[in-house]
C-alpha cells in the first residue's frame, strides 16, 4: 500500500510501481534499479538519497524514459497523473518531457549547450510544447529568469552559457525546468557542483518555487544533510533498491535500516567535534555482481544468516514508513 492512499484519494502525481532498469553489457547484466516503488503527491518534495552507484540517477532517467541502450526499463510501471509512461511511445513521451515532467541535471557547466544563447535554449523549450510566437516566448523566458532570481533577465537571454557563473547557470536550468509549469521536476544532484553558499540559495529558491507552483519534486542526492532541510519525505537507495522510506523527521530521528543509520552517522556535525567521524565499513557493491540476499549484508553489523540467504522485502512497520530489512532498528541508537 502506498502512502498517498493512506492520506487521500486524489490521483498522485507520480506512482512508480516495481520499476526495474537493467543494463545489458558484455560484462554482464547490471541491475541498476530493482523493484523501485515511489509515490508523490502534488507539491510534495521527495529526497532520493544514495551513494554514488546506488542507481539513483538511473532511477531519475528511467522515470523520464531517457534510458539509452544498453540500458532498458525491463518491468514495472510509472504512473504519471494516472498514465503509465512505460506504455507510451516516444512521441507521446516527448510531449510530456520538459512540459509536464522536467529535469534538472547535476553539472550546470555541462547542461546548457555552449553554442546557443540562453534565450534560444529557453524559447525552444516553450515552443516545443505550445504554439506561441517568438515574441511571446521571449517575454515568458524573461519572466522565467526573473522568477529564479536572475537580475537583468533581458541581457541574460542574449548571453551564452560561458558568460554566466555556475550558480547562475543552474538557476537558468531551473528556470528552463519551470517554464512550462510542470507538475513534476526530477532534480539530479543539482547543487553538488556548486559552492555551499550558492547551494543554500538554490535550495531555498527551489523550495519556494515548488510551494508556489504546487510542483512535485524528486531531489536526487548523496547528501543527506541537504535533503533533510528540504524534503517532506526521504527515500534511501542502496545498490539499486529502495531500503527505507518515510517522513524526513522520522528518518533522520529514527532510522530503521542500518544503512540509513550509517549514512546519518557519517554526516559531520558540530556536536561531534573532536570525535572520529563514523563511516560505513566496506564499499558499495558493483551492480554487476550483487551478493545473494541483502546487498548491504556484507557491510552490516546486524546481518544474520537469513540476510545472506535471501533478499528482504519492503515492509511497512508503521503508517507512512517502509523498510527493507530483516533486523530493523527499533529505537534511536545511542550515539556516544
Amino acid at each position: 500500500m502506498t502512502l498517498s492512499q493512506d492520506l487521500s484519494s486524489e490521483v498522485p502525481v507520480l506512482d512508480v510501481r516495481n520499476l526495474c532498469t537493467r543494463f545489458f553489457t558484455e560484462a554482464g547484466v547490471g541491475k541498476a534499479v530493482e523493484d523501485l516503488s515511489l509515490c508523490l503527491r502534488r507539491g510534495e518534495i521527495l529526497g532520493l538519497v544514495g551513494e554514488s552507484g546506488s542507481g539513483k540517477t538511473v532511477a531519475g532517467f528511467s522515470l523520464m524514459g531517457l534510458i539509452d541502450p544498453p540500458g532498458r526499463v525491463v518491468s514495472g510501471q510509472v504512473l504519471f497523473e494516472g498514465v503509465d509512461l512505460t506504455a507510451l511511445n516516444e512521441r507521446a513521451l516527448r510531449k510530456l518531457r520538459g512540459n509536464r515532467i522536467a529535469m534538472i541535471f547535476q553539472d550546470p557547466m555541462m547542461t546548457l549547450n555552449p553554442v546557443l544563447t540562453i534565450g534560444t535554449q529557453m524559447i525552444e523549450t516553450l515552443r516545443a510544447h505550445r504554439r506561441i510566437s517568438r515574441a511571446e516566448a521571449w517575454s515568458r523566458a524573461r519572466d522565467g529568469l526573473a522568477r529564479v532570481g536572475i537580475a537583468a533577465p533581458e541581457e541574460r537571454l542574449a548571453a551564452y552559457p560561458h558568460q554566466l557563473s555556475g550558480g547562475m547557470r543552474q538557476r537558468v536550468a531551473i528556470a528552463i525546468a519551470l517554464l512550462n509549469e510542470p507538475s513534476l521536476i526530477i532534480a539530479d544532484e543539482p547543487t553538488t557542483a556548486l559552492d555551499v553558499t550558492i547551494q543554500a540559495q538554490i535550495l531555498a529558491e527551489v523550495q519556494r518555487l515548488c510551494r508556489e507552483t504546487g510542483t512535485a519534486l524528486i531531489w536526487v542526492t548523496h547528501d543527506l544533510a541537504v535533503v533533510s532541510g528540504l524534503a517532506d519525505r526521504i527515500a534511501v537507495m542502496y545498490a539499486g533498491r529502495l531500503v527505507e522510506e518515510g517522513r524526513t523527521e522520522a528518518i533522520i530521528e529514527q532510522p530503521l535500516h542500518p544503512y540509513t543509520r550509517g549514512l546519518i552517522a557519517s554526516v559531520p556535525s558540530r556536536n561531534l567535534r573532536g570525535e572520529r567521524l563514523r563511516q560505513i565499513p566496506g564499499m558499495t557493491p558493483s551492480l554487476m555482481s550483487l551478493p545473494e540476499g541483502c546487498a548491504f549484508a556484507p557491510r552490516c553489523d546486524r546481518a544474520s544468516e537469513a540476510c545472506r540467504a535471501r533478499a528482504p522485502v519492503m515492509e511497512t512497520p508503521a503508517s507512512g514508513r517502509m523498510v527493507r530489512c530483516f533486523h530493523p532498528l527499533t529505537a534511536p541508537e545511542d550515539r556516544s
Binding site: M64, L66, R94, K95, L96, R97, G98, N99, A102, M103, F105, T111, L112, N113, E124, T125, A128, H129, A173, I176
Partner: peptide, 8 residues
Amino acid sequence: KFARAKGL
C-alpha cells in the same frame, strides 16, 4: 540529454 529532457 538535457535537450531531449526538454522534449525537443
